[in-house]
């Protein structure tokens, strides 16, 4: 059986909000090390990989592997009934057909319980190759989100170029073109505003901005984001969690 407790429901609410627009139904695999999810978005352009280590929970118990087949939007609907600072417990018996969620306020004078029906989901799992990326950029998650939002007013696509001078985002559409360039920098006072670039060779890739904007909904999970790119390959975009991560593998647009 699974029993996992979080001190603040907001932790799970934010994670689910970060993935719900892309995913429909998917399996969450639970074992003694934690919860894991791997799922393709509906159009197979983004692969979402979520890891929630058992250390990230205030209490965690899962003696035997449990697969939770869930509709992510149903989970989001139920989580909306929890206050952000509620204590949240997830429970599921072995081979059960439901996930039980309880939300308690800190004084424990209110307890809500919801049972979410589980589904048998036939899911494809992809092997993600171990990759040494040509460029790795660590930057503010909020700045990335803002930059992409600005450029989405111009075009459906953004081109990202990374070289030793910095990272450049550009877009071109009917009304004209625009770009934002960030130089590598260290901000001693606000470390999350630093831009760190590690590079073995310069890279340039283009991506759909609608999908990118869905990915950056994870910005509430972490102050920084790690963007990794290699020419002609999917980008890896990672938001670190206190114990685990939300990772997106994002297929580029490639010139025919």
């Amino acid at each position: 059986m699974l029993e996992a407790k979080l001190d603040a429901a907001s932790q799970l609410k934010k994670i689910v909000e970060a993935i719900r627009d892309m995913l429909g139904e998917c399996n969450i695999e639970c074992n003694e090390t934690g919860l894991a999810l791997q799922s393709l978005d509906k159009s197979h352009i983004v692969l979402v990989s979520l890891l929630l280590g058992s250390d990230g929970f205030s209490e965690y118990r899962c003696d035997r592997g449990v697969t939770l087949g869930l509709n992510i939007n149903s989970l989001a609907t139920v989580l909306r009934c929890a206050n952000n600072d509620d204590i949240l417990t997830l429970r599921s018996e072995d081979r059960a057909n439901e996930l039980i969620l309880t939300f308690e306020d800190s004084k424990a004078d209110r307890i809500s319980e919801f049972n979410l029906r589980l589904m048998d989901i036939d899911q494809e799992y992809l092997a993600i190759p171990e990759t040494e990326y040509a460029a790795t950029v660590v930057m503010s998650a909020a700045v990335l989100q803002r930059t992409l939002r600005d450029l989405s007013a111009l075009s459906e696509a953004v081109t990202i170029e990374i070289d030793k001078e910095g990272i450049r985002f550009s877009a071109e559409g009917d009304l004209g073109k625009g770009s934002t360039h960030f130089k590598p920098c260290v901000d001693m006072e606000n470390a999350e505003n630093s831009i760190n670039i590690t590079l073995s060779e310069p890279v340039s890739l283009s991506f759909n901005l609608q999908y990118f904007s869905n990915i950056t909904k994870a910005s509430s999970l972490s102050s920084t984001v790690t963007l990794q790119m290699t020419a002609g390959m999917p980008a890896q975009i990672e938001y670190k969690l206190p114990s685990g991560h939300v990772r997106y593998y994002f297929a580029p647009k490639i010139e025919d």
Partner: peptide, 14 residues
């Protein structure tokens, strides 16, 4: 011109 690739074109099923 630019064509949207799918993730399944890069990663395979084990």
């Amino acid at each position: 011109r630019f064509k949207q690739k799918k993730i399944t074109g890069f990663f395979t099923m084990p």
